[in-house]
Amino acid sequence: MGNLLEHMGIEKDRLHFSWISSAEATKFVDVVTKVSEAVNALGPNHKLVKNAG
């Protein structure tokens, strides 16, 4: 799914997959930080956005 999104022009770093158990608090923080950094680096998304009205 990620591959096809990327194929049609959605930047790879916008979509992340992760498996985190409820006991893995530090992994959760780690992943969220990395995801935010990656997405911030890309800037705002304008693709697949529907404008209301």
């Binding site: 990327e6 194929h7 049609m8 022009g9 930047e11 693709k47």
Partner: peptide
């Protein structure tokens, strides 16, 4: 050929 495009080119292609 499509894979070789950058993200915006791909987006515009579709």
């Amino acid at each position: 050929a499509i894979e070789a495009m950058d993200a915006d080119e791909k987006w515009n292609h579709f």
